[in-house]
């Protein structure tokens, strides 16, 4: 017994080192698996607050650019609206929020955006109290950004498409073939679309959109255009480089998409146990 205690005391630094190493390695490994990296996250009040402070300073420098982007988006939406109804000043006012619309959008601002690491996350200033939940899709005016992974009361962490854990269903605009969108960690504005069957007819410059197979993103949200494509080693699937519409290094504001039918769809998809 004496010897054991002596051994422990003699090697206490080494044992402490091993313990701390073990702890930090567990945290590291957890951060590499989807939906498990909950302990060390910037959504806590300390880092969220500090990033908010930084945002409130930096915000002023991008106002002009932000305004222009909002105007552009407004023009697009107005053009689309004028196609739908000849007379944009509707004679009777209809409150669309009372309808059972499939998706609701929530706006938010980006507090922190990474793009130079292998696993990148984005911190936004909306949390549970604003109705953000995990697995909600995040887009900007131009295209998709990522999926909410972790929420706290006031902040949420978004797993960016520039993350090795991110896998998003995406397809071609002109046909129904689809694949999954991943990132190889190199260029923050180019992502890869994998497992598109070789029967698909591709052309450089074709548009890639979300295909609405999951409840996260509605169909038809822009992702990017085909930059390059080749067949994989087995000659059965295409590997496509996609140039993103978004500039991932410059995301000012985002919209979170709440799918109002998600629970209903999930209920149908899960097999019933009692039968």
């Amino acid at each position: 017994m004496q010897q054991i205690i002596n051994f422990l005391i003699r090697n206490k630094n080494f044992l402490l080192f091993l313990l701390l190493l073990f702890l930090s390695l567990i945290l590291t490994i957890q951060s590499h698996s989807y939906h498990k990296s909950k302990f060390i996250s910037s959504t806590n009040f300390l880092s969220g607050g500090v990033y908010g402070w930084r945002y409130s300073i930096n915000n002023y420098f991008g106002l002009k650019n932000k305004n222009e982007r909002l105007l552009e988006e407004n023009v697009q939406l107005r053009n689309r609206l004028s196609k739908l109804t000849r007379d944009t000043i509707a004679t009777t006012y209809i409150d669309t929020s009372s309808f059972n619309q499939p998706y609701t959008f929530i706006e938010g601002n980006v507090y922190k955006n990474d793009y130079s690491k292998a696993d990148n996350y984005i911190l936004i200033n909306k949390g549970e109290k604003d109705g953000i939940e995990s697995d909600m899709g995040i887009i900007t005016d131009k295209g998709i950004v990522g999926i909410v992974e972790n929420t706290s009361k006031n902040y949420s962490r978004v797993i960016s498409i520039l993350n090795s854990n991110s896998r998003i269903n995406a397809g071609l605009k002109r046909s129904n073939q689809y694949g999954s969108l991943v990132w190889n960690g190199k260029d923050p504005n180019i992502v890869q679309l994998e497992t598109v069957p070789r029967q698909a007819i591709l052309k450089k410059g074709d548009t890639i959109i979300t295909n609405g197979r999951s409840t996260i993103f509605p169909r038809g949200i822009g992702i990017g255009t085909i930059l390059n494509y080749e067949l994989d080693q087995n000659q059965s699937y295409f590997l496509i480089d996609v140039q993103l519409f978004n500039d991932m290094t410059d995301i000012g504001f985002i919209y979170a998409i709440r799918s109002n039918h998600a629970t209903e769809i999930k209920l149908l998809e899960t097999p019933k146990v009692d039968e």
Binding site: S24, L25, T28, S37, I40, S42, D119, L123, R157
Partner: peptide, 22 residues
């Protein structure tokens, strides 16, 4: 360890800075 963990907390990087630091 605390130093590395603080950097990890802000950078959303799990425990990589903590490991390197210790």
């Amino acid at each position: 360890f605390i130093l590395g963990l603080t950097i990890d907390l802000f950078g959303d990087s799990g425990g990589i800075h903590a490991t390197a630091c210790i």
